[in-house]
Design a protein around this nucleic acid. Structure first.
Lengths: 345, 345
DNA sequence: GTGAAAGCGCTAACAA
DNA sequence: TTGTTAGCGCTTTCAC
């Protein structure tokens, strides 16, 4: 069935119901101002013909798309390897679904993709964009700004071209880091090291700042640079063990990295937490609960962040702010963090 | 800038360049048959105005969208917890990007979502659909069929309503399972158990069949039902230990489940592989390489499957087959598997 | 409350 | 080679 026989149009439904296109359109879009018997007839015609509105035609006139782009400025490799994005997407997806909006996923692997994404956003496919994982030198904010699409960022964007009053959602990276370090100090540890994330991202910088807030006077050799990945964590931990074999605690910038850290400590014969206490960041459940020993970490509600981003965007859209700022006057929402105690610290 | 000032249209570009809309359209779409000086003038106008074609308008007439839907019939929880989907998506994403096509992700959490997805597909947003993780009783194939959108399935669909000649890509689940079991037997194991996947999915059924091909005469008590998740694996492994404490090998339906299996074995004080050899399925690198001990498993190239699915769909689309079957005459592509030996078996 | 008619921005015959 | 002219399927004033 159906063959190449193109789908029925409003016209067809109108003919079948013996009314005008306008009437069908009204019924299809909520049915206000159409008397019941007529409306019923239209509904039946829609049903019988299996009519589904053509979105392209509708968007052309309404300029709405009921779709939101999610842009992740990260190679696919990372996006799909890091549960962080998964959780965020989950929150977003839930919220969008609730608003009958579709999620369009745009991954930007490298330079070339930027243009493609910009073109897509400007092409009027979506009502807005949620953008993640910006790096310091990323041209994306500028391009997106140019595309003139309402946008909410995930994570505080590093200040770049004209993103001054960008709307963003983030967790309290700095405060969370302070909590983590204080927790370790509270355990009686004194030589607390830190393994950073990728320092071209604000989250990593903020967490490092938080560490320094508390450990300001500590030996700089206690800080090693990671990149949010397990292998980065491994490398950094090896460095640390070399530089300061006497360390008795490590605050790792995220749980994923902690995976590598724990591995290296195990290899080195250090017991966790007896010899070295380890605390992560994110509370990525599938990771934190399964490590050996289970990971004490700073919890942020990632899924909720995603949901909130979507809500802000949609709220802004519905609020009818014609411009690009979904939440005029409000530019950043920062969510709280808490320490979740497990066995590693 | 940009204000609410709507984006420039073809008309505007034409005016600026002093040509007709048709000419601009030609230049924008490849520029054949337009003399160079004119074309250049148009390009400059496009540039100056920052013109980007309105996709809705274009789709309305061309009926093309340069977008493909990826439908995953699984709760978000699983989609994002299971690296399997991630890899598949990665392959798809790469291929689509290469063809300048966008990926639209549709997750169907439950019954309610089916209608939404069907509506979306029928609404003419996309040129085709890639559908995953169908369950036996899933109405989706029928709905999608009804939507009249070219579709490629990931994994052999369980036969349902009129999906007879569905196009699909799958790995050789049955053959791979046979390889796994033979590998265990080759190690001298004789009491080989099997932990199944979710048996409402063909991949799980096929793997079970493969196990039985080789172990046909074995004690049925050696088979326990899992569901492709770590906790499912745990449960099943406990059952097995109870029923057949003498087992000396387990073939687990996927690597993710093996995670739980290894945990239970460790708790039970069974050494792997000395006491119990364990083999998984999928070769999900981030998992298989990191387990303790590293997991021997049946490798399938998941990313490549994704890529292939996308290629089939796009190829079919470009082939101009008006109907729904992107690859007439060919309905299933089955990829080979190989055993990857690590430490667990 | 309902219908007629005018576009939304674009492509694709068809003329010139 | 370039321009003119119809629509694509829908929403939305504006009359009736």
């Amino acid at each position: 069935m159906t063959e190449t026989a193109s789908r029925p149009t409003l016209e067809a439904v109108a003919a079948r119901a013996g009314v005008s296109r306008a009437t069908v359109s009204r019924v299809v879009n909520g049915g206000d101002g159409v008397r019941e018997p007529l409306a019923e007839r239209v509904r039946r015609a829609v049903e019988e013909l299996g009519y589904v509105p053509n979105q392209a035609a509708r968007s052309l006139v309404t300029r709405r798309h009921d779709a939101v782009a999610v842009v992740i400025a990260e190679p696919e490799t990372r996006v799909f390897a890091d549960p962080f994005f998964a959780l965020q997407l989950r929150g977003i997806s839930k919220e969008l679904t609730a608003h009958d909006s579709q999620l369009v996923l745009l991954l930007t692997e490298g330079r070339d993709d930027h243009a493609r994404v910009a073109r897509y956003l400007a092409g009027g496919h979506v009502d807005g964009a949620l953008v993640f994982s910006l790096h310091l030198d990323d041209p994306l904010p500028g391009l997106i700004h140019g595309a003139g699409v309402p946008t909410v960022f995930g994570g505080r964007p590093g200040w770049g071209d004209g993103v001054r009053e960008a709307v963003y959602v983030d967790c309290d990276n700095r405060g969370g880091a302070r909590q983590a370090v204080r927790h370790l100090l509270g355990l009686g540890r004194t030589r607390v090291a830190h393994i950073t994330g990728a320092l071209d991202q604000t989250s990593a910088v903020d967490r490092l700042d938080g560490y320094r807030d508390v450990m300001g006077d500590a030996d700089p050799a206690l800080v090693a640079q990671g990149d949010f990945t397990p292998s980065g964590g491994e490398r950094a931990m090896r460095e640390l063990l070399e530089r300061r074999p006497d360390l008795d605690a490590v605050f790792v910038a995220n749980d994923l990295s902690a995976l590598g850290v724990l591995r290296v400590l195990r290899e080195a014969g250090r017991r966790v937490p007896e010899d070295v206490a380890v605390i992560g960041f994110d509370d990525m459940l599938p990771i934190a609960e399964q490590t050996e020993p289970p990971l004490t970490t700073v919890r942020q509600d990632i899924e909720d962040m995603g949901r909130l981003m979507a809500r802000l965007l949609i709220g802004g859209l519905e609020g009818g702010s014609a411009g690009k700022d979904p939440v005029p006057g409000r530019s950043g929402v920062v969510l709280p963090t808490t320490v979740v105690r497990r066995a590693s610290a």
